[in-house]
Design a protein around this nucleic acid. Structure first.
Length: 122
DNA sequence: GGTTTGACCATAA
DNA sequence: CTTATGGCCAAAC
């Protein structure tokens, strides 16, 4: 039996059905070092352009120590939309791989934006 | 059932 | 550049 879900420790569990979490994770894993993508791009690549928010929820639920580079996912326009201290953590992680962030925005966002060439099945 | 809450987004002013 | 608004979806309450 899995332990009971604890929103305080795992964040909001807002998914778009079974498999959503892992499909988001698999896609984000493909974003290479030094590149970024957006919640909307991930949602679109998964065939659900209207559930960008749930991409964020899925990432928020990742276990600590996950191999998923969640910090490479930013909001539209290259903005960092994480609450409070988490945004600084994300900025630090991005900087560690050469992605500069200034005033809450990824510098040269368009150039660093990753394109999901092959789209995923619905 | 209804209301609130978000790691969102596009658009308008 | 900024804020405001409406739309969106699913879980929590």
């Amino acid at each position: 039996m899995p332990p009971p879900y604890d929103p305080d420790r795992h964040g909001p569990r807002r998914v778009v059905g079974p498999g959503w979490q892992s499909r988001v994770a698999d896609l984000v894993r493909r974003v290479p070092r030094g590149a970024v993508t957006t919640y909307g791009d991930v949602a679109t690549a998964l065939g659900r352009a209207n559930v960008a928010r749930h991409v964020g929820y899925a990432l928020a639920a990742l276990p600590a120590g996950s191999d998923v580079p969640w910090w490479r996912v930013v909001a539209a326009g290259g903005r960092l939309s994480l609450p409070g201290a988490a945004a600084r953590d994300q900025q630090r992680r991005l900087a560690a791989e050469g992605v500069a962030v200034a005033n809450g925005r990824v510098v040269a966002f368009t150039a660093r934006r990753h394109r999901f060439d092959d789209r995923a099945p619905r």
